[in-house]
Structures are given as structure tokens and as C-alpha cells.
């Protein structure tokens, strides 16, 4: 592992994209940054602009309107970029998979590096997923 990659893994800045989710996953993601779980000890920060992001967290079912936005975000982000699909909706479509407006799942639209299943996944599961991702080849 070279110096560059070491720095990259030590400082993953996260941008959160919520599709048409039921809002549970969003709350669990925010929960990871709270005092109890504290993702900052791994150097993970939530950033406000996609230009600063290293990780794109996608949760919720992706419907036809979200699809364009998600593609746009992915194209605007500086590479290298890791994409994480969170929740049953993000991974497969979950309970919305049969829906009329459904355009996902995420990996049909953009390449995904990690899947964190669950409906919603526990914060512990999200942390475990992100730590594994930080250990993976970036």
C-alpha cells in the first residue's frame, strides 16, 4: 500500500445522496456521525459539496427523476470516487422494486463498490461496511 492510497483510506469524505427513501436509512446514516458512533475517528467527514467527496453514499429507491440527478452527481465528482449503496432499497430496490416509477437499483445506474443491506441497516453495519471499504483497494 503506497503513501497516496494510505492517505486516501485515512481520509474518506462522504457525500450523502438520499433518493426516494422512506427516511429511515437517512436517519441511520446521520446516527453514524453522532457521539455514540463517531465516524470522525476514522477520518470520515460529511461534506456539503460533491466536489470535495471521496465516497458517495446512496440510499433509498432510485426513481426516474432521481436517476438523472444521481448520474449528474457521479459525473461531477472528482475521481477516484467510491460508491456505497445503503439499505435494501439501494442494493436491490427492496419493497419498491416492483413500483411503477422505480428506475434502480443503484448498480444499474453507476458502478457500486460496496453494498450495505438491511432495512434500515444498523449504524454498526454501516460503520463495518465503510471500514471494510477503507481497507479495500481504492
Amino acid at each position: 500500500m503506497g503513501f497516496k492510497e494510505f492517505c486516501f483510506r485515512k481520509s474518506l469524505w462522504v457525500f450523502h445522496f438520499g433518493g426516494a427513501s422512506c427516511n429511515n436509512c437517512d436517519i441511520e446514516i446521520i446516527d453514524c456521525l453522532t457521539p455514540r458512533h463517531d465516524l470522525e475517528r476514522f477520518g470520515i467527514l460529511l461534506v456539503g459539496s460533491i466536489r470535495h467527496a471521496d465516497v458517495l453514499l446512496v440510499n433509498g429507491s432510485i426513481n426516474r427523476r432521481d436517476k438523472d440527478r444521481l448520474l449528474e452527481l457521479y459525473n461531477q465528482a472528482p475521481k477516484p470516487l467510491l460508491v456505497v449503496a445503503i439499505g435494501a432499497c439501494g442494493c436491490t430496490g427492496g419493497i419498491f422494486a416492483e413500483g411503477n416509477t422505480f428506475a434502480g437499483p443503484v448498480d444499474k445506474i453507476i458502478p457500486v463498490d460496496a453494498y450495505i443491506p438491511g432495512c434500515p441497516p444498523k449504524p454498526e453495519a454501516i460503520i463495518a461496511g465503510i471500514v471494510k471499504l477503507a481497507g479495500k483497494k481504492g
Partner: peptide, 29 residues
């Protein structure tokens, strides 16, 4: 900041990781 919020906080060299990641790894748009 982390201690005020009862968190553990980042490791000592975190600002340098951030800086070198931005400088060496990321793409300029």
C-alpha cells in the same frame, strides 16, 4: 470539538492525511 461533543475525535495526523489526499490523489475539476 470532538471532546466537547463527547466523541473520540480524529487521529493526530488527520489534517495531513486530508491535505495529502487532496493534493496527491484527487482529480482537479
Amino acid at each position: 470539538t470532538a471532546r466537547v461533543q463527547f466523541r473520540k475525535g480524529p487521529p493526530l495526523l488527520q489534517p495531513f492525511y486530508d491535505f495529502f489526499k487532496l493534493l496527491l490523489v484527487k482529480e482537479t475539476i
